[in-house]
Simulated scan of single mutants.
Amino acid sequence: MSSAGRSESTTNFFNGWLPITTGLYSFVTKYEAALIEVYERESTEVFTSEYIYRLVGPHQALLKDAAKIYTRTMFQKLQDQFDQVVCFVVIKRDVEGNVRQLTVKSHSGRAESFELQIDLEKLDGNCGSKLFEYVGLPCCHLLKVFSKYDILKIPKAFIMTRWTIGTNKFSRLYDESQLEVDNL
Rank of each mutant, 00 (worst) to 15 (best):
I20T: 15
T22V: 14
D150W: 11
K77S: 12
E8M: 06
N98Y: 05
Q117H: 02
A67Q: 06
Y134N: 15
S2H: 15
C139G: 00
T21P: 01
S171L: 13
R6L: 15
N168P: 03
L143Y: 09
S113G: 10
L142H: 04
I151H: 00
R6V: 10
L35H: 07
L137E: 02
Y53H: 12
K156S: 09
G97I: 11
T29Y: 09
K144H: 01
G136D: 09
C140W: 06
S129L: 10
S2C: 15
D94G: 08
I52W: 05
S113A: 08
W17I: 11
E121G: 14
K148R: 14
Q81A: 00
D150T: 02
S171V: 06
R54P: 03
T161Q: 06
E42N: 13
E42R: 12
T167Q: 02
T11D: 15
R93P: 02
G166K: 00
D83N: 13
C139L: 12
N98D: 15
K64I: 15
P19S: 08
Q76F: 04
V46Q: 11
Q76N: 15
K105E: 11
E42I: 11
P155C: 07
G109V: 12
C140G: 04
I69F: 01
H107T: 07
L78M: 03
Y53K: 14
E176W: 09
I20C: 05
R6W: 12
N168F: 08
K68E: 13
Q117A: 13
Q84L: 14
Q117V: 12
E37A: 07
K153C: 04
D182Q: 03
E50M: 13
E42W: 03
T22G: 10
D119S: 01
L63A: 01
R72P: 02
L184S: 05
K122M: 05
I20W: 12
H59Y: 04
L18C: 05
L35T: 06
C127G: 06
L184A: 10
L102C: 06
V95T: 07
F47C: 13
I52K: 06
L152Q: 12
L24R: 15
R162F: 14
S2G: 11
C139W: 09
L24A: 10
C127S: 03
L63T: 01
E133W: 03
D124M: 03
S49M: 00
Y149W: 09
V89H: 15
D175N: 15
S106W: 01
Q84N: 12
S3K: 09
T11I: 11
D124N: 06
F82I: 04
D94E: 12
M74V: 09
I69Y: 07
H107K: 14
R110T: 00
L123N: 07
E133Y: 07
D65K: 00
Q81S: 08
R93W: 08
V145A: 02
V181P: 00
T22S: 07
K77M: 01
L131S: 03
T103E: 10
Y149H: 08
V95K: 08
E32D: 07
P58W: 08
A4F: 08
D124F: 11
K105Q: 14
K30Y: 07
M1P: 05
G166V: 01
K122W: 09
C140V: 01
L173T: 08
F75P: 01
K130P: 03
E8T: 03
Q76A: 07
F47D: 05
V56A: 00
Q101W: 04
K130Q: 11
L152C: 11
A33E: 14
F75Y: 02
R172P: 02
G16T: 06
G166L: 07
Y149S: 12
